[in-house]
Structures are given as C-alpha cells and as structure tokens.
Design a protein around this nucleic acid. Structure first.
Lengths: 188, 188, 188, 188
DNA sequence: TATGAATGAGAGTTCATTCAT
DNA sequence: GATGAATGAACTCTCATTCAT
C-alpha cells in the first residue's frame, strides 16, 4: 500500500502539480481513505522529499558508476552522463518533472539537503570537464563552471518538451546534444 | 495602485510561487485590502496571464528586431538573442521565473495562447539556424530542431541559477554560451 | 437616470432574484457606475421597498376604484378584482414576482409596513364577500376569511406559471377563475 | 451529524431564506465547524436539492397512494390530496416554504429535475379532474388545465399564511377549500 | 450629477492534518 | 492496518457601501 501511494503521488504530482494535487485526490484514486495516507506518511511534503531523494540519489549513483569506469575517456564519460540523464527523463518523466519543478515546495531543511546533492552532481560533472581539459581532450580556455551549467541546463531542460512516446529516442537526442557540445555548430 | 499590485505580485510569485502566494499576502504587503485587488483584477490567474503576456511579447518583439537587423550575420543574430535572453533574466528575473515555472497555473485557454507564442519564438530561432546552415555559417549536418531546443534550453535554464547580483554579468555568460555553442568544447 | 435604475432593478430582481442581483449588475447593465446608484438611492433595500410600495399602492388604488363603483354588484366587483390582479401579473410580471417572492429581504420596519397594506387589501376583499353574503349574492355559510385567502391565493399563485406571451390572455384566465369560484366544479 | 445538519439547514433556510443563510450560520447553530459541513455535503446547493427531492418525492408518493385507492371517487380523491397538501404544510412547513420559494437557487440541471416532478404532480391532479368530468362527477365544461392550476395554487399559497400553531387545523382549512372548489360561493 | 478608488465583512469552499476506534 | 469523523486555518472571490473629487 505504501508503494502504491508513493507511485500514485508521483503520477498525480507530475500530471497536475504538487500544490494542485490534494491528498484526497491521491487516496480517491486508490480507493482508500486519508487515514491510510497518514498511516504511512507523516505529511504531504514527506512524500515530495522522498521523490526528490530517490531521484537525485539514483542519478548520483549512476553518475558515480560512469565516472569510475576505467575504460572510458572524458568525452565518453560526458556522453554517458548525458545519455543517462535523457534516459532518466524518458523512463521516469513524472519524477523528473517533479524534481525540476516542485523543489520550492520542500521545507527549508529538506531543500538544502537536496541542494547539496544537486551541487554535488554538478561539481562532479564540472570536474570531468576540468580533467578532460588537463588531458587535452577539451579546449584549455573553457570556463568549466559555466560550461557545466550550460550543458546540464541543455539536458535538464528537455523534461519540458521531451516526449518518451514521440518519434525521437532518448539516445538520439543525447547523440545530437553531445555532437553539439563537442563540436559546436560553426562550419569549419 | 494597479501597477503596484502588479509589481508586488511579480515579486511574490517569483519569490514564493504562484500557488503559495495568496492574495492576502499581496495586499498585506501593500497595506491595502483584498477588495482593492479585485477592483483592479478579476482573478489571481488574470495577473499571472498578464505577467506571461508581457514577458513573451517583450522577448518576441526584441527577437524580431534582432532578426530584421540587416547589419548582422546569423552567428551574430544568435549571439544577440542569447544576450537578450540573458539580459532579460537579469533585469526581470522574477518574471522569468514565473514564466518558466508557473505556466501550469494558467487556464487552458490562456495556456494555449502562451504556448503558441513560445512556439513562435522557438521556430523563429530555429529558422535562423537553418538560414545560417544554408549560408554556410553553420555546419550542414545539424538537426536544427534539436539544436534550437538545446541552445534555448541551455539559456533558459540559467534562470535557475543566474544571480544578477553575482560576480558574472549577463554578457559574460552569454559570451561563454555562444563560444560553447559555436565551437564546442573539444580540443582541435 | 433614477427611473432607469429603478426599471432595470425590477428587471434584474425579477429575472435573477434580489440577493442574486448585485448593484454592479444593475449599473453595468446601464453603463453607469456604482456611485450613480448611491447618488439616487440610499441602499439596495430601498429600491426593493419602492418596488413593493409602488406595487401594493397601485393595486390598493385599483381595488378601491372597483369597490366604490356603484354600478356593479358584488359578484362583478370580485370578478373585476380578479381581472385586475391577473392584468397586473401580465403587465408587470417582474414586479409581481418580486412582490411575492422577495418580501423577506425587506428590513423589519419596511416589512411590517408592507404587511399592513397587504392585510388591508385582503380584508377589503373579504368584506366584499361578506357584503355579498348579506345581500344574498353568496352562500350564507361561507367562511369569508378562508374564502378570501383561498381565492386570492389562487390568483396570486398565477405569477408562478402565467406567461404573458403564452396562448392564454389574462382575461381568459380570470373568467375561468371566477366561474370556478362562483359555481364550483361539481356537476349539478 | 449529517441529519442534524440537514434538519438545521431546513430550519434556517425556512426561517431566513437560502441566500441569507450562510454555512457559518448553520454550523454555528450546531456548535461544529464548516469543515464538518463539507465532510457530509459537497455544497450548499446540494442540501437545497435534497430538501426539494425529499419534499416532492414524498408528496408524489402520497398522491399516488390516493390515486390508486379503489374505495374513493374523484371528489374524494381530490379532497384527500388537498388534505394531504395542507397536512404537509402543517408538519413540514419549513420544507414547504423552501420548496415553493427557493427553487431559483437550484442549479439548472437540478432545477429541471424538480420541474419535471412538479409537472408530474400537477398533471396527475389534472387527470383526476378529467376523469371526474367523464364520470359525471364534475361539470363537463371545465378547463381542466386552469382548474388544476387554480386549485393547486389556492392550496399551495397557504404556506404563506397558514400557521400550524394557529386556531385552524389543516383539516378544517382543507374542508373549507374543498367545499369552495366543489360548490363555489354563489348562492343557489 | 456622477465617478472611481477603496473598504471590510463575509461568502462558499478546500485541505492538510489529527485522532479515537 | 485502516477508517471516518472532525477540525481550523486558509483560500479565492463578492458585494453593499462610503467618500473625496
């Protein structure tokens, strides 16, 4: 039951927004009562926090796996991370929407916890760029900080428009992005 | 008074979110009463719509001006648009936050009006890329659609982190972005 | 202007009800402002009272004229009153609706004023019945009080269903009523 | 509690009118909170509709029972219906007031439901008159439609003035009414 | 004559949460 | 494990009325 409530909450928060989704909506959709919700969760915000935690911990773990892979150079690692993020938007689009859109509804304490992890993700990404610069894979004159923000922004923004049921696969988009990021759009 | 209410609404919607900001908050912050709010506006959503319209109409007009400039090539036009968007985030950051975050709170009728205009902006940007490809300014093998979405995503995302009072100016960021977009990060 | 406001109020109170009609509705329908309303009337209830007064004074005067007519016997006088009431519903249906339906929205002081006049009308009608009984026009065993209430009720109720634009004229209905009242429905 | 709220609503709607009675009034009178009201009812109008339905269904059922009684002729059936209506006004005067006065506050959908049932009642009454005419109990030259409207109007109107605690019983009034209706007031 | 800005009280309704059972 | 009754605070919005101009 706990899992059912959790999944249905993701569904409805993603579809209609956190503030717009009442606990009544959630329990009605499951045919149970509000009491049941409060038996498993202490507040609506707690569920939002769990969604956030699950999402960010998941991509942090995946990022770490990619970073530690000894068989890939930095270009490939960045490609893998972009792929991973796009796949994430594809398979858990609702969670992604909630993660990127409903942050503000977390309590201050929870919010800073999440911020820390988001920063961690971004900094690790930035470090890959810096290591690639040292190794000569990337241009030496980059601003790694803004580059990281720019590339991640490009990818994250996709949750606004990317449609898992549309004609483009996550990998297709990821490949176009990495080409864009590596080579730019200027004709040589 | 109408303007005061409008500006304060932008302030509070931007700071705390649309759903989280009550009309009571707005009028309390101005030392007037709820009646005053409803004397000037017919609903809370009407204000949200006006914020959206003002924002999108403004950047559409600015985009048009840039597009029609006969003294600039396509690289420069795209740079100008990126600059313009960043400047927009700088000077009306609250409106930008609201524009990118609170869309969902518009009524269906209003929402589709805004969608149309957002699409218009994106398509015009994409056309610049395509014209630049024809002219030989940009690589011929680009996917102009995804490229447009990617570049605009990168820029738009900045509203999440860009701090007008921080050490980086909007132009600085825009220059880094355009370098990234034109040349990519790969070492030659 | 005062008259315009008065007439439009009758219109809207009759159509939508007193409580459901706001002063805003009234002035909007006339293209003026609320200030104008309060320039001519001191309150919404005052208008309601004036509607009531005009209506009841009008039918009281008409009743008096009928009662004093020396050329008619009591049967005829009662017939004339029924006719007059039906005609009233026909030509000022909105006022009638308001008169019969919105009484409760008068202040206590005003209400008792109206009650007095309504009682006056009923009592005068009852007196006609009693005089007719003495004269031998009507049965001697009537309960004049209930008879008056019953007959007036029958006629007044018509405002619920009588449609001035329908197939039946006010006189037609009045004739059927008086036949009913005089002769009953039982076969001889 | 649900019943308590229902009964108190009848009380207050009847006393002060539907629009004039706020939910706050209702719950204050019961010492509960507005939340409680909305736990049991979805809107103020829903309660109004339930009052209407209960009232009209009740008198429709009672009318049917009278119509189907094989031991009574049409005169008697009509008398029984008048008695029943008067008794109804006596024992549930508040509901009657609401039923006859607050119809307009129903939503369109609900209103037409009630109209149908009111029409059904009236038509069945009219049919009794017509059957009585065929049987020779009533005059053959009646306009059954207007007669039905007139008689029911006379009875219904009683809710305006009939006082259950007054000197006249419901049966007394009903008897006077039926005498009036059957025999008329004219001296033979 | 008429306006327009502003008020303040109150309307119906929603909702996260509590808690005895 | 789950319910159902109840709360209380907050919500958006309405409206009759006032008053300086």
């Amino acid at each position: 039951m706990k899992d059912k409530i959790f999944e249905k909450s993701i569904d409805l928060f993603g579809e209609n927004g956190f503030s717009e989704t009442s606990i009544q909506h959630i329990v009605d959709a499951l045919g149970v009562t509000k009491g049941t919700f409060y038996y498993y969760f202490t507040s609506k915000e707690q569920i939002l926090m769990e969604i956030h935690l699950r999402f960010i911990n998941d991509i942090l773990a995946k990022q770490d796996a990619i970073i530690q892979d000894p068989n890939r150079n930095y270009q490939e690692k960045i490609y893998e991370i972009i792929c991973m993020l796009m796949k994430n938007i594809e398979v858990q689009g609702k969670s992604a929407k909630i993660f990127f859109r409903e942050m503000q509804n977390l309590s201050d304490g929870h919010l800073s916890q999440i911020f820390e992890k988001r920063d961690e993700f971004r900094i690790k990404f930035q470090e890959l760029i810096e290591l690639g610069m040292e190794k000569g894979e990337f241009r030496k004159d980059l601003d790694s900080h803004i580059a990281a923000l720019g590339i991640l922004g490009m990818v994250n923004w996709s949750y606004h428009w990317f449609d898992p049921d549309g004609p483009l696969s996550d990998t297709t988009v990821a490949k176009i992005y990495i080409d864009l990021v590596l080579n730019g759009i200027k004709a040589e």
